[in-house]
Simulated assay, not measured.
Amino acid sequence: MLPSTPLRASAVVAVGTLWQGTARAGAGPYGPLLPPNGDGLALPEGFTSRIVARSGRKVAGLKWHAAPAGGACFPDGDGWIYVSNSKVPLLGGASALCFGANGTVIEAYRVLPGTTLNSAGGATPWNTWLSCEETESGRVFECDPYGERAARPRLAMGRFRHQAVACDPERQVVYLTEDEPDGCFYRFRPRDWADLTEGALEVLTTGGAWRAVPHPAAPVEPTRFQVPDALRFDGAGGCHYADGICSFTTRGDGRVWSYSAGTGRLETVRDVDHLSGSGRRFVAQDGGSMEISVITRAGEVAPFARLEGHGHSEPAGPAFSPDGARLYFSSQRGRTGARAGTDGHTFEVTGPFRA
């Protein structure tokens, strides 16, 4: 395992691939940031923003949830849908914004009610949203972004402090991260792909093998302690799969890990080129910077957007619309920084994004 110099990050959006971790500081491909606009968002020339939803205020008839967190976009005819988690206790869950072809919000609705501390998650290849509870016996809920089917818990995927998930359609497995200082890295092998009701939950061990978790749905027997030689990670966060590589971060030590599904090799990433694939790499950084950064193919990192006046918040849920023309993300606690997230802002940025 290789050492790395950390760039702390809390969430990642990728078009084609993902990067979260070490990179060199440099000038970005979009140029310097201009002074903050009326939304308090500093962007490069040619880009504009708008606030599409605010916590506690109605959007298309729905009162937008507090503490907007992880999110993803889904196609919807000529338009698209942005789903956002709510990281609050007991009343968390997830909501959706439905956009028309011209970008107008035409509908908003809940896709998951009454769950707790829904932080991150991930989209599936069959266009559902996996919303994860970040609690000691948290669950994964499979949600319908289109609002036609009720969300369902997928208990076979384990009860632990879930953070993020990533689907590997080639091997038909789902990778899961755990936000504990001694957490684990898991994979779920469903009995039938695209049906997450039943299957085997496995944990990566110190020897590099995957071992079955005996009681994944046990509410009081911690999942991470059920396999004695499970490999430990310090607060795993964002997770993404592309081109045979599952990448995930550990926020406790600021590392990004790369797991090769083909070879079983696990290492920390030091070179941005190690993550293959084409497209843009954007990372939402916490730790006081309140920036969405872009990481170039040359391995340089530069701010793409900076929130001013949101110093006690954190950016979350970055995702591109299906056509890649609009970037969505939230300021979880907004300008007031209220811990309850009652001033959360959800943004849309448009402009000359590059492929």
Results as ranks from 00 to 15, higher is better:
11 A>T: 15
18 L>H: 13
26 G>M: 06
29 P>W: 03
30 Y>K: 04
32 P>H: 07
34 L>D: 02
37 N>R: 05
41 L>Q: 11
44 P>D: 07
51 I>H: 01
51 I>S: 00
60 A>K: 02
62 L>N: 11
63 K>I: 03
66 A>R: 14
68 P>N: 10
69 A>F: 04
71 G>P: 02
75 P>M: 00
76 D>N: 06
76 D>A: 01
79 G>R: 06
80 W>S: 09
87 K>H: 00
89 P>H: 01
91 L>R: 15
91 L>K: 15
99 F>G: 14
106 I>A: 01
108 A>Q: 05
110 R>L: 14
114 G>A: 14
115 T>L: 05
116 T>G: 06
117 L>C: 04
132 C>H: 04
133 E>P: 04
144 D>W: 00
148 E>K: 02
150 A>T: 05
151 A>N: 01
154 R>H: 11
154 R>Y: 10
156 A>R: 15
159 R>T: 13
162 H>F: 08
164 A>D: 15
171 R>A: 07
173 V>Q: 08
181 P>W: 01
187 R>P: 11
189 R>D: 11
189 R>L: 14
190 P>G: 10
191 R>P: 01
191 R>V: 13
196 L>N: 02
208 G>L: 12
211 R>A: 06
212 A>M: 04
214 P>Q: 00
220 V>I: 14
222 P>K: 01
222 P>E: 03
223 T>R: 00
225 F>H: 10
228 P>R: 01
234 D>Q: 14
239 C>L: 03
239 C>N: 07
242 A>I: 11
243 D>V: 02
243 D>L: 09
243 D>K: 08
244 G>M: 08
250 T>G: 12
253 D>F: 11
257 W>V: 11
262 G>Y: 03
265 R>I: 11
273 D>R: 08
275 L>R: 13
278 S>W: 03
281 R>F: 04
285 Q>F: 07
291 E>L: 01
300 E>V: 05
301 V>R: 15
305 A>P: 15
310 H>I: 07
314 E>C: 06
318 P>G: 07
324 G>Q: 13
325 A>N: 10
329 F>I: 13
334 G>C: 09
335 R>F: 07
337 G>S: 10
348 E>P: 01
354 R>S: 00
